[in-house]
């Protein structure tokens, strides 16, 4: 069997004396869509942010495509941000609060990584960026500034920005929870379309129904550990662990 694209092994993270992740293990295969659910404060964001080393794990391994992330090969020394850059470039990340760059146009937000990180010539970068914007149905907004867009549009630009990295893996951290309810749909639709293209995704979400429909597998986290994981439909309709059941029944209301 082919080894998984992403492996998370024995991941721990503490802030001072507060242990937020207490040994997380799971993996994501190529083309697989994995949703992470769980109550607030359970460590979902922290786990996701450890994958691309926005947070430095206290212990454990992150392995992307056979390569250990954030640690110098052949030693135990952590990489600096400069050394991490090429690895982070392989993972696209979509944040809850978008974090578009307000001083750049929508097109520049998407193309700047192509030009400056991937070294794609300017013209070509703009073309690719334009394609990505078309993909999220925002080709007509290319030359506006992000501040003038709605939340849903901003989040779709952020998705286009992540796509422009040509990433092996897409990380989503509650991409719709900062949005007004009527704007959630347009973003979920875009994510659905990307899923249909067969992209590999790791998605933290509160949208249980969406997780059930889109994900191959669901991971339920609570208190810094993985309580239960399994095929999406099965886990959500028929959870095994008591804690999962309680969580899901609360959400249902």
């Amino acid at each position: 069997m082919e080894s998984p694209l992403l492996q998370i092994k024995d991941l721990h993270k503490s802030y001072g004396s507060l242990e937020v992740l207490k040994g997380i293990d799971f993996s994501v295969s190529k083309g697989e869509k994995v949703a992470v659910i769980g109550p607030s404060g359970s460590g979902k964001s922290t786990c996701l942010r450890c994958v691309n080393f926005l947070e430095k794990p206290s212990r454990g391994h992150i392995i992307l495509d056979g390569e250990r992330v954030g640690v110098k090969p052949g030693s135990d020394r952590l990489m600096s941000d400069a050394e991490l850059a090429p690895q982070r470039a392989q993972m696209g990340m979509v944040f809850q609060l978008f974090y578009l760059w307000p001083h750049l146009t929508v097109l520049e937000n998407v193309s700047i990584g192509l030009r400056k990180v991937q070294g794609v010539p300017s013209n070509e970068a703009s073309e690719i960026a334009m394609d990505m914007l078309e993909k999220v149905h925002l080709g007509n907004k290319a030359n506006t500034f992000p501040g003038l867009l709605s939340g849903g549009q901003q989040q779709r630009v952020a998705i286009a920005r992540a796509l422009a990295q040509r990433p092996k893996l897409l990380l989503f951290d509650e991409p719709t929870s900062a949005l007004d309810p009527e704007l959630v749909g347009e973003v979920l639709n875009v994510i659905q379309e990307l899923a249909d293209e067969g992209r590999t995704m790791l998605l933290v979400t509160h949208e249980i129904n969406f997780a059930r429909d889109i994900a191959d597998r669901v991971i339920f986290m609570d208190g810094g550990v993985v309580v239960e994981e399994g095929p999406a439909r099965e886990l959500i309709t028929n959870p095994q662990a008591e804690r999962t059941r309680v969580f899901l029944s609360k959400i249902e209301k």
Binding site: N52, L54, S80, D81, A82, L84, A85, P86, Q87, R88, A89, Q90, M91, G92, M93, F95, L97, Y99, L100, W101, I112, G113, K116, V117, Q118, A158, R161, A162, A164, Q165
Partner: peptide, 20 residues
């Protein structure tokens, strides 16, 4: 988040400061 989004797409710290 401005910085995080920049390093997340693979910018180096220097690029992050200069461009973002």
């Amino acid at each position: 988040g401005q910085r995080e989004a920049a390093i997340a797409i693979g910018m180096t710290p220097y690029q992050t400061i200069r461009l973002i």
